[in-house]
Design a binder for these strands. Structure first.
Lengths: 159, 159
DNA sequence: GTTAAATACGATCTTTTTTGTCGTATTTGA
DNA sequence: TCAAATACGACAAAAAAGATCGTATTTAAC
């Protein structure tokens, strides 16, 4: 669950759109659909999930809509991804505890450790990347370019 | 194409297995299938592709098989992934030139830049990570004592 | 109060992607 | 000549992703 899929796209599109608005101003899904061509139902579902998790705040009824409910500088890309797609797992053998035994080759697999390490590195990177940063800080603030955790696969193995 | 899928798994499993062998010693797909439970046909095709690209060297005929054909320290994970899955693309709008216009939302999309930035970072990371490193360098830490018995199939499994 | 516009959400259908299998040809050592 | 291996195109099955439908609920405006 690593690739940016439609859910994640719709989330980012919506968040970027809403971030440009005045505080308290709402955005309807219809607005997103007509502005970006995203499918109404699918995008709607994504916003609902984000609202459940507090990333967005929803107002029901006529003139309802969504607005940003959390400081995006304190929302990591990892967290956003987890909300929509579940834990960041670069392969089957990683997954949530539910899928833990998903791979039938466990036990005879000789690459469990490498895969786990790679997954950990990706995770660290995603966790250190805020959604605000990803979307591009609109103000004049200096943007910190987060780097992938560099090399040292062996060195950090026991960290 | 970012996630480790079966193709990449079979490739890594095979490479790790072959790396433990003496120079010139061949590994048949049948051997991989019985040792790790990987499906013969699927794994076979992966090895064929790797052989076409010079990562492996194939010997046909009876007693044939594959052996490593390139220094894995100079083969990046990015390159391996590209051979099997095409260019590393974290979203549709990135892809190979063929898929370039794959996303119908281009033109109205407000997150092209963020997605490209993220893709670039991932790419850099994958490009700086060698397959040797990923599989765990069997050097300093795990230096093998002078020539243990060679048929160490089971010994390789590290799960 | 009725209506219109919006979110809420379960269920299902469709499409796409991934994965595995089959059939056949070719190579090569014994 | 046979057996064991790679080579490879074509197809089938399975899984995942994505979109849509139906209905309920909320709320502002009239």
């Amino acid at each position: 669950m690593n690739k940016i899929n439609r859910k994640l796209e719709y989330a980012l599109i919506g968040l970027k759109h809403m971030r440009a608005k005045a505080p308290g101003e709402l955005t309807s899904v219809k607005e997103l659909a007509s502005a970006y061509g995203v499918p109404f139902d699918a995008a709607s579902r994504v916003m609902q999930v984000l609202a459940q998790k507090g990333v967005l705040i929803s107002e029901q009824g006529a003139h309802g809509g969504y607005m940003i409910g959390r400081d995006l500088a304190r929302l990591s890309y990892a967290e956003l991804s987890e909300i929509l797609l579940g834990k960041v797992a670069i392969a089957r053998c990683i997954g949530d505890s539910a899928d833990e035994g998903a791979c039938e080759m466990r036990g005879s697999c000789n690459i469990v450790t490498p895969v786990q390490m790679l997954n950990r590195k990706i995770n660290e990177f995603y966790r250190g990347l805020s959604v605000a940063e990803l979307l591009g800080v609109p103000s004049s603030k200096k943007k910190r370019e987060p780097e992938m955790p560099q090399q040292n696969f062996e060195a950090e193995a026991e960290a």
